[in-house]
Design a protein around this nucleic acid. Sequence first.
DNA 1: TCAAAAGTGTTTTGTGTACACCCATGC
DNA 2: GCATGGGTGTACACAAAACACTTTTGA
Lengths: 244, 244
Amino acid sequence: MEKELKLKTAEIEKISHLDYFNIAISVDCVIFGYDQKELKVLLIKSDLEEFAGLYSLLGDLIRPDEDLEAASYRILKERTGMDDVYLEQVFSFGGTDRHPSGRVITITYYSLIDIKHHKLQLSHNGLHWHSVNEIKKLAFDHKLILDTCLQRLRQQVLEHPVIFNLLPEKFSLRQLQELYQAILGFELDRRNFRKKISIKDWLVDLNEMEANVPHRPGKVYKLKPEFRKKMTRRKALTNKLIIA
Amino acid sequence: MEKELKLKTAEIEKISHLDYFNIAISVDCVIFGYDQKELKVLLIKSDLEEFAGLYSLLGDLIRPDEDLEAASYRILKERTGMDDVYLEQVFSFGGTDRHPSGRVITITYYSLIDIKHHKLQLSHNGLHWHSVNEIKKLAFDHKLILDTCLQRLRQQVLEHPVIFNLLPEKFSLRQLQELYQAILGFELDRRNFRKKISIKDWLVDLNEMEANVPHRPGKVYKLKPEFRKKMTRRKALTNKLIIA
DNA sequence: TCAAAAGTGTTTTGTGTACACCCATGC
DNA sequence: GCATGGGTGTACACAAAACACTTTTGA
């Protein structure tokens, strides 16, 4: 992967001097995870001198024979080993100066993965999970991209059952509430939260209890299978907010 | 403009045979207008043999020195003569087979214009306003693009005061309500509608009355200037729905 | 005088929000 | 027995929805 990134920069260098239609197109992925009660995002060390010491999102140029989703899935698969993930296109960024080596338009996706279910190559590249709240600056315009995706994620979790892609299959209502809070950035009332979730009828009670908690164990639930849609889909017309 | 479109096809033909990074990038604009109590969209005859007899959206390849918004504004300006318009990026479509002459990824925008304030060159090209409801099929994947933009427009008018870009500066509440209905596709209660609009405090009463109506004239309003934002902006976190 | 739409309030229903107590478990 | 979170219900405030009559104008 190191090699691939170097190649990428070189290729951009080359094409930036060609004629009219040579604009490169990339996909950048904001890969969200959840751990230690914090929302995380997968970052890698920037391979450009201009951005030495800064981290960037995961991305790559699009290949001529793959569509946008395929490119996103490829990036995810290469970096996390996972291909069964939730993925959603967010926005395209096309400023003429956003890449120092030439004109690159990027189409951004965010994805949600269960951080425990993957094996990263954390050895080099600086590939790592970073707390979203602590990120002040990224290479390129990636901070803007991250903020845009986070905003979209916040909208989505208010309206649709996508948040479960960040959790293991079995979870307690406390875990779910803490995750909502980590994403939204504010506290929720426990009783009202439970009421709204139960009205939504998204969950199955597994008749199990949490184990290894230093207090009274809570019930364990899983998402009903009909809501486990992982693919990119078109959004439905906004209905009522679910939470908050 | 005829010439430019022919050129465009030829250029795409050429680049489709080049090497790795030669993917063309276009912007397609779904330009909405409102007339005769119907939502309209600006269409043009497709210039490709493959789509003879079909209409398509307005679009063009992106130039290397212009960003995405600049390309959208250029297309609008060329076709409608207007450059003071509301514009919003919606989605990017990148299927490998979406253009018969080669790989073209398109970034789509919708815009809202006051249909009375422009002068189209309606003489040739088949450039015309088409009722959105009557469109069954378009060239390329443009029907899908149109549907996606319409869905986004419906979301936006429920949350933000963008709808006024489709109306003349002065309008009555009846006109406004009819426009909401045309976009949303269902009827609204007149009293509840007026109440919600007045709570929003978007409008100024101009102390004028409608003229030339075959019934009791209504009051005439305009949008408060602070809500007349025409540029592309990032969306705010969803707040409560306004209408419906 | 009729047709067409303007203008205007009240009631009912549902949803959001604030809030407090007892319970079960691990340590 | 104490600390920690689990689990539950009620009261109030506000927003949405349903609904009818009188007024004004043009034809």
